[in-house]
Design a protein around this nucleic acid. Structure first.
Lengths: 251, 251
DNA sequence: CAACTCAGTATTGTTAACAATCTTTGTCAA
DNA sequence: TTGACAAAGATTGTTAACAATACTGAGTTG
């Protein structure tokens, strides 16, 4: 409670320069629930909203300058997508996936993403390649500038871009959800530094798509996902920021 | 409007005998939004709720015996899953997918389901086989008894059971959504009698899984989906019940 | 000193009234 | 008859007050 007072607001409201344009249209029109959901999605993907963080209605209201109703609608949407948990009479908390849920998310990605890149590699179109290529450029730029949160977010978003490259709204939505939930999982079970990790694996995948090598692309994305998953320690979960004991130490 | 007055209530509230038990627990506890969502899901899957049907809040309130708030929450959830469309100030309408959306849904299923059955066939476990086998028995029984709506629903639900057999909650949720949206699509673009269609294709798929033949299973499910899709006429869409012109004829 | 009780406070859940918007109906004129 | 226009009605969107529940902390007791 003491820590999150100001930190929570920052973690949501603070937006990186190039992204503020994609969410906010010129004037600050009061955001609808979709905008609120988007903001929280972004905060989770940048791992600024730790699992189990409480999202009180009042706080969100003042953060977004919106009535309670909009906030509640947004929270309901987020909960239906597994990003937050809604406890009756106790409020909304950033989701804190357990081992089983984490496995489910990874398994779902293991099922879905290989066919995706396979399809991309079979018939790569210029627009898709440009989209992915541009994104990787962004990743590299952020990495060089040591922008940690940006690197993390872009690293996850690459996989969303894969769905976008296919040009399928339904798949895109599914991937957005899966990737965001993965951010929570990595935040919980990740072993310190490997939060972003992929380095040039994304570039290799793109290359396989470019050269129209479906089998290689599938193999690369599969091992990429396995790599991420293997970097997790499913048993020793890092305690969520919420309980102060771990922050302040055992003394 | 005239037609739906009584028909709407029936199409939602009326529940087939063996399913009422799975949604309602003993006493009629006033249903939360999750129950409402489930009921509407079922009605859509049985194709009793035609696309573009208006779901007015007042009607739903009295149908479910629930306050307006619950109904609105349910509608929001349904809209976030593409089952209904929410038009500002105009209300909620059962979704009416266009050609592009329909293709996206089928493409998503084409991406997701083959890997699913592949995984099932690689390591079939008894519980999964029993689940699927029992379901096919239900399908056959319903077909023999000529219970049209039941056949339609079970026919779609088989694919949900595939996800359930994998034992992955995330995949299960995705499949539920995809299958339900498919029901809407088939209702819109389907050529009369092929609404349910598969006959014994489901059994064949199960058999491939049982005999641990992944390649065959993948091939069967792929052609099964292609078969369903080919039965659609994407251009000559059957007009939704809403506009009376098609009901009363051109005269 | 630990654990428990019990008000007081804060937060969430619900309801009902109000405001805004759309739809329909009825009227009038061309 | 048809079209436009305006008022009435119905439906949705929003707000605010109230109710119910959970949390907090002081005080008490073992």
């Amino acid at each position: 409670m003491i820590v999150t007072k100001r930190a929570l607001k920052d973690s949501i409201v603070h937006s990186s320069p190039q992204l503020s344009s994609e969410n906010e249209t010129k004037v600050s029109t009061d955001p609808d629930e979709k905008a609120i959901v988007g903001r929280i999605y972004k905060a989770v993907m940048e791992q600024r909203l730790a699992p189990n963080t409480k999202l009180s209605e009042a706080r969100l209201c003042e953060t977004f300058g919106v009535g309670r109703m909009r906030v509640r609608r947004a929270l309901l949407l987020l909960s239906s997508q597994g990003i937050i948990d809604l406890h009756s009479n106790r409020g909304a908390y950033v989701a804190c996936p357990d081992k089983s849920e984490a496995n489910d998310v990874f398994e779902a990605r293991m099922l879905l993403e290989p066919p995706m890149v396979k399809r991309l590699a079979v018939a790569p179109c210029d627009k898709s390649l440009a989209l992915l290529s541009d994104h990787i450029a962004l990743e590299n730029a952020a990495r060089e500038k040591n922008e940690r949160t940006e690197v993390i977010r872009l690293s996850g978003e690459f996989h969303v871009k894969l769905a976008q490259a296919i040009g399928n709204e339904v798949v895109l939505q599914m991937m957005r959800e899966l990737v965001t939930r993965t951010s929570l999982i990595v935040g919980l079970f990740g072993s310190s530094n490997n939060a972003s990790c992929p380095d040039d694996e994304h570039a290799k995948i793109l290359n396989a798509i470019q050269t129209s090598d479906p089998e290689l692309a599938v193999q690369l994305v599969t091992s990429h996902l396995a790599h991420i998953q293997s970097g997790l320690d499913m048993d020793r979960r890092t305690r969520p920021h919420d309980d102060l004991a771990t922050i302040l130490g055992p003394a």
